[in-house]
Design a protein around this nucleic acid. Structure first.
Lengths: 155, 155
DNA sequence: CTCATCTCAGTCAGACTGACATTC
DNA sequence: CGAATGTCAGTCGGACTGAGATGA
């Protein structure tokens, strides 16, 4: 007897939710975060290491505050993450002579190598995340997401 | 003097991050979540109300466990959310006569009206989230996200 | 004086876990 | 017995806040 809706495809999602970009995004964010964390852990990296190394490699030596702004990371976390990176020899932290409030953080050669290791670990991750999407579709998705993020950053 | 990378566009994001779908998604998820929460609050709804009402409207009366599966909500939260919806008169909860472990939850006429209010509140939200994307691009994005989510659900 | 930087301590909501009684 | 349901308690890492010391 079919009094309740328990029988058919017990985990079918309501079409209203599937039609809602914000719902799709917040739910995809969960595996996206998990996959990235696993890739980091497997490469001996932690939470914000990749973003920090990427910013240092691209923009050169920076203060911790600037790093935080560039990577959308709170300055409180930058402290700890830079500590870890220093300990592993991936960055150097020296007090800025011109502005002695600041620490100038610089990526090392070992840091660049670690960044490249993380690059390839993350490439695998993106495959697992995007699954059946073709390269063209992935780029399409990436471009659309980039525009959405830019719009939000401009708010 | 330009010894550090603090000067140019102080919040420019590293291209490595912008190239990473998982980074884009997890960062867009933050405003997406915030915008939806605000829309819910403004309509007198809370956390999971929309998903639950949508599932009930589409699939008919369901047990709380089935609701949780359909909406990807832990059954612990379903309890509280259904309590709130009952209190507001948007759903009814009665013990299932055939299986007395279960509560059968049914949406009311007032619940359908509330669902429609939430529909239009969320439509505004999607505009704020997706900003400059054309309708065709939004549908393209939505379709790609849907395929990614389906792939993750199948994992 | 005001502001930015770095650092650490504390807070706080949200996601998850475990346990339990009930019923199939 | 094992499995599912509804319910409630507790736990736990992650995001955020505030304050304080230093210096521009």
């Amino acid at each position: 007897m079919k009094t309740t809706a328990d029988d058919p495809a017990p985990d079918a999602k309501p079409t209203r939710l599937r039609a809602l970009p914000s719902w799709l995004i917040t739910h995809i964010a969960v595996p996206a975060h998990r996959l990235a964390s696993e890739a980091f852990a497997a490469t001996g990296a932690a939470r914000y290491h990749y973003a920090l190394l990427a910013a240092l490699e691209e923009f050169g030596p920076s203060s911790q505050a600037a790093l935080g702004r560039r990577c959308s990371i709170d300055r409180s976390y930058v402290v700890g993450a830079v500590n870890e990176l220093v300990e592993k020899g991936y960055v150097e932290r020296v007090q800025d002579a011109a502005d002695r409030r600041r620490n100038t953080v610089t990526i090392t050669a070992a840091g660049v190598r670690q960044l490249e290791r993380l690059d390839s670990a993350l490439a695998t991750t993106q495959d697992a995340l995007l699954g059946p999407l073709s390269p063209a579709e992935r780029e399409q998705l990436r471009g659309l997401l980039e525009r959405v993020l830019d719009h939000q950053a401009g708010q």
